[in-house]
């Protein structure tokens, strides 16, 4: 390539020497045309081309920056939302566990209360039954006692053949009651 350049330069020199120097001689008129044409090109491109495309590139850059900002914002919001959801889930889980615990505790309490109520009721019923039984026993004992007295009085009157007065009846009743095991009779009945 260097040889070619050298040859080109020598050729240009030869041409200059032989043909009125049209290659390496400086031609002011051609320089002026070059200068003027380039200045026109420069002015037109600067005025009508570069500014426009630079404006568009700036606009696109702004759009991309905005889009990136929006994407960052969206990502940030999504992250916040995810955190909030995770927090709410955690809270919901805690609340659920709390509710379950409360329910369990309440059920336990209700169970205990029910058991206590049932026990109390049972005790009350047993007590009532016992009282009723005692009352029935007392009534029966009194009934037996009355029957025994009547039978005793009746038997005594049959044996003695006379009607017993009031003092004799009382004495006889007391003696009979003392001798007869009323409890045993009641239990046998």
């Amino acid at each position: 390539m260097e040889d070619a350049l050298l040859q080109a330069f020598l050729f240009a020199q030869e041409t200059a020497e032989e043909d009125e120097g049209s290659l390496i001689d400086v031609v002011p008129g051609l320089m002026v045309w070059t200068f003027v044409t380039f200045l026109i090109v420069f002015w037109v491109l600067r005025r009508f081309a570069f500014g426009r495309i630079q404006g568009l590139i700036d606009q696109r850059r702004d759009r991309i920056r905005e889009a990136l900002d929006e994407a960052d914002k969206a990502r940030s919001e999504a992250r916040e939302l995810r955190d909030r959801i995770a927090q709410e889930r955690q809270q919901a889980k805690m609340e659920r566990e709390q509710i379950l615990e409360d329910s369990r505790r309440q059920a336990q309490r209700q169970l205990e209360q029910g058991r206590e109520r049932a026990d109390a009721d049972l005790r009350e019923r047993l007590e009532k039954n016992r009282e009723e039984l005692d009352a029935e026993n007392a009534r029966l004992r009194e009934q037996i006692r009355r029957d025994v007295v009547e039978l005793t009085l009746l038997a005594s009157e049959k044996v003695t053949g006379k009607v017993l007065d009031e003092d004799d009846q009382r004495r006889l009743i007391e003696e009979t009651i003392e001798e007869v095991d009323v409890k045993r009779l009641a239990s046998e009945n």
Binding site: L30, W33, T34, T37, F38, I40, V41, V44, L45, F48, A49, F50, R52, I53, L56, Q59, R60, R63
Partner: peptide
């Protein structure tokens, strides 16, 4: 050739960098 080059440069520059530009 310089004139031709100047005109072609202007046309090329304007064709590539001015008309019908969009995002």
């Amino acid at each position: 050739y310089i004139w031709l080059g100047g005109i072609a440069t202007i046309l090329l520059g304007i064709w590539l960098m001015r008309f019908g530009l969009s995002l």
